[in-house]
Amino acid sequence: MTQQLVNLTIDCKGLSCPMPIVKTKKAIDQVSPGQVLEVLATDPGSVADIKSWATRTGHQFIGTTKDGNVFKHYIRRTDPNEVRPESRHADVISNEELQALLSQNPVILDVREPMEYTFGHIPGAKHVPLGQLEEELESLRNFADQVIHVVCRSGNRSDTACQILSEHGFPHVKNVVPGMSEWTFDLEQSQS
């Protein structure tokens, strides 16, 4: 299975303020909600600008890496549906409760996009993006008799994932709330 980390890359190398922001704004409209935009820039001001821009426009700033003198900024276009799910999976567990269980090697399923997972996830968490969950159900079947703790950024995608798992015969599924946006404990980063 190949996972696409980035859905669109734009090149703002050599451009100065405000062009990286202007081009980022145009590019975010070209990806679908939930997809990830990569912005390449050499302007050091873009590090703070892109982050502020994302916060201000309601998109998710995933992170920035540096490769030589090139900054790579990652932004995920926000999915309006994430804000208002229609129904809720009843069985939830808090970040703190999950943290307390970590020594017992619980099953944790992270359903965020690959780039979000790469920038930091709960140590030992398995990764299946929400969009691929249904096709990956059989690979999770071994864990069906255990409690599966499902996590995303804010508890919404994981809520949907919990409902999908419950419908497909996974009886012990818990949604981790609020999720990675407020996870203050240890993180593990993937080597890319």
Partner: peptide
Amino acid sequence: LNIATAAAATD
């Protein structure tokens, strides 16, 4: 124009 275009890009 820098402030104007940056502001417009920020919705």
